[in-house]
Design a binder for these strands. Structure first.
Lengths: 253, 253
DNA sequence: GTTCATTTGATTACTTTTGATCAAAATTTG
DNA sequence: CAAATTTTGATCAAAAGTAATCAAATGAAC
């Protein structure tokens, strides 16, 4: 094995495992720890790996990510919702993903899919999926919302209109039978509307705290929603009301 | 077997296998290692293969061999160039920044500027500047080039045409008096052209190894360049030739 | 068939890479 | 916070690989 081949393999192994020790690598490569250290030194200089005491780690794009490490509220509910949503993605699909935290949690489950194409305005989604070989990514361009770690604005909306996807995965600030989908920021609602208009199916990921709650910008009717995925805290009556207003399918996890 | 036939076969075998040792090739070709080395030397000169200690590899159209190695190699030159380039940015400016490694190094120096607006297709630039309060960022959208950590493609080019900036800061693969600016990828050259067309001034950051070197896609004339910043390794004669062809200003750091 | 240029493989000196050793530095433990 | 342990990086000799040189082999031109 030549040096370049070995380095490539080290890179692949560490990316696969997340992190490995010098000795584990020495084993895998059939080389001495001294050699591995030398290799790691060079790979690290290129910034492709992060050296740790005793080994090396895959660099995480923490700077871009921002909220991916933060503690997400209602984490467990959202996790179940995201997992369910991911099952709706078929191999080969092109999908829109918005910048909500529940949608973000689909990423882990998407890594197992083959050959999917993700179009997103979310930097955390980007950061999480950028190193997955089976996933192609298109990034929505436009003004950067630093706090939300997402792209938004007029240009972004125009840009979304230049694409079509089989499915869009979105979150909202509020949803009710009376007012449909609502948001508390025009930036947010503009992007979500654009996704809705350019996808064949709309999947709304929405923990039950948002259901029956209204925010102040009404931006879409419930009939726009092909599938609403939510958690247990939803009453039978509410379900019926939502379905009556046009939510095609309702999944409770 | 003629020399040409053998070389062709070597190329085919290495491309098939990804990489092969000199001895493996000697075996396959029924030739001595000395002959294989000579062949590899010539093939490598054409850039069709990458020589490794002990063998040869299919060229890796990316980060591992390309950009990051160079970044480390001429780091100090590039740092000086980037620093000089940053002095050309005025408070309040809107600037384009491309995805070159030298351009990236401007980031550190930009943090001190007040109220600037950066439009970029480079994820490293994005990551570096995202948390700087005095800098607004617009991200160019489009297809994601994972290896280059940048956005490119037709949509990206269209997107750039939707903006105007006072200055663009760009890198190139090659520049010469005869052929102007050259690149080795259409993705790259397309983006750079778009920046050139939509900025009032073009500042080219270019270490001296690129000067006098030509890559194969000619995409802009020297008269498009308002300012070329380079390091010491440039001859007086070359300077004159570049200026004669239209480079408005030439700064050597 | 001789001459001349090219190509080849062997020999050589030289460079790079490797793993072992060991003191210094970093980390963990008491 | 100091001792014990682990990890590291520098150094060096051995091994592996390379580039240069040269003579033999090939083959084209006359």
């Amino acid at each position: 094995m030549t040096i370049q081949e070995r380095k490539k393999k080290i890179l692949a192994e560490v990316y696969e495992a997340g992190s490995l020790s010098v000795f584990e690598l020495a084993d895998k490569m059939a080389a001495s720890p001294a050699t591995i250290r030398r290799d790691l030194h060079e790979i690290t200089e290129q910034g492709l790996l992060v050296r740790t005491h005793g080994g090396a780690m895959k660099p995480d794009n923490a700077v871009i990510t921002g909220f991916s490490d933060k503690k997400v509220q209602r984490h467990e509910d959202k996790e179940r919702i995201a997992q369910e949503a991911a099952t709706l993605v078929d191999d080969g699909d092109t999908i829109f993903m918005d910048c909500g935290s529940t949608v973000f949690q689909m990423c882990t489950h998407l890594k197992k899919k083959a050959n999917i194409h993700v179009i997103t305005n979310s930097l955390p989604v980007l950061a999480e999926l950028i190193d997955v070989p089976s996933i192609r990514i298109n990034l929505i361009g436009g003004e950067l919302d630093k706090k939300r770690r997402a792209v938004h604005g007029q240009k972004a909306i125009e840009h979304i209109h230049g694409y079509h996807a089989a499915k869009c995965f979105i979150g909202v600030d509020g949803i009710s039978a009376e007012n449909g989908l609502t948001a508390h920021s025009e930036h947010e609602s503009g992007i979500t509307s654009a996704y809705l208009q350019n996808a064949s199916q709309a999947i709304l990921l929405c923990d039950s705290s948002k259901i029956g709650r209204d925010s102040y910008i009404k931006f879409a009717k419930l009939s726009a929603i092909s599938c609403l995925i939510t958690d247990g805290g939803i009453e039978e009556q509410t379900k019926k009301a939502l379905k009556a207003k046009g939510v095609a399918q309702l999944i409770v996890v």
